[in-house]
Design a protein around this nucleic acid. Sequence first.
DNA 1: AAACAGGTGCTAA
DNA 2: TTAGCACCTGTT
Length: 318
Amino acid sequence: MCRPASKPYCPGEGESVLRILLPGPLNLEVTLECGQAFRWEKVQGSRGIAYKGVVGAYSVMLSLCDVSGTCGEKDAGREFPCLLVSFDPVVVKGTTREMLADAVFRYLSLDDDLDTIETTLIEKDQIMRKALEFSRGLRLLRQDPWECLASYIISVHNNIPAIRRVISYLSKQLGEPTGLREYSFPAPRAILSNPAVLDLARCGFRKEYLLDAARKVDGGEVDLSALGEMPVEKAASELMKIKGVGPKVADCVLLFAYHRLEVFPVDVWILRAMSRFYFGGRQISTKTAREEGIRRFGKFAGYAQEHLYHYVRNSFGL
DNA sequence: AAACAGGTGCTAA
DNA sequence: TTAGCACCTGTT
């Protein structure tokens, strides 16, 4: 049997399924439905509930093997269950199973040491401890930067069903097939050459924002491949060269695509939560909320933010 | 019917 | 630097 550290996947589950031995906790449902990514769809798979979505150039269906199943493995008295990844062999042809497993492993940030992160946050304060109880095993993803950027531009002053609809439509119209009847999010150039599709997608006033983003990314004025190497503030100001990208969208991209765990995106929910929990209900600015989040939660502020977000959305009527 | 939804750009102090 | 307002579109 393979072990998490040395060999992250196990072949032999069949032609179009691979298994990834989980090196730590993973709450698939919270991770994929907490709102950091917009495209995952809950489906009824052959083995029960699964999530269908796109990782890189390929569609996959993700599910956890059941606790009583035989595919988990004990190591040092601790059980590590498996993640099942099924894919379309026709589309994946030419890619090795190792490469696909690595892509999923990286996308889900299975290398993050959740025990350390969650323990650190729980010790911060009682609010965070309560919040953590609702979303243990949540992992911040490493999404594709362009798709993430475009998605959060679309999210501006919008609601989640509408956001999902727009992204889904654009992908279907302009993206590449990725198997399982899904399509990749369209590249900047695909959008630039079919701007009318943005109207059909009903993205409203965000159309000009998306076009500006596509132009600046395609033209190299904003170099997405260079952002990972920059200090966060510098990377954020690069992103904010784009019309429609302010502090909140920039922080979301840095957190959900570049895995900059020290940022603390503030939307209306986080603003309410910070005001209520840490400022006695007093009115505060988003700037104040952001600074306080970073001050309190330090290098794991991003994880704190996501747990807090999930907490206020799912257990309060704020 | 009117307000609101994962903010941002613009303008005015 | 900060406050106030409009904004496509869809839903309640």
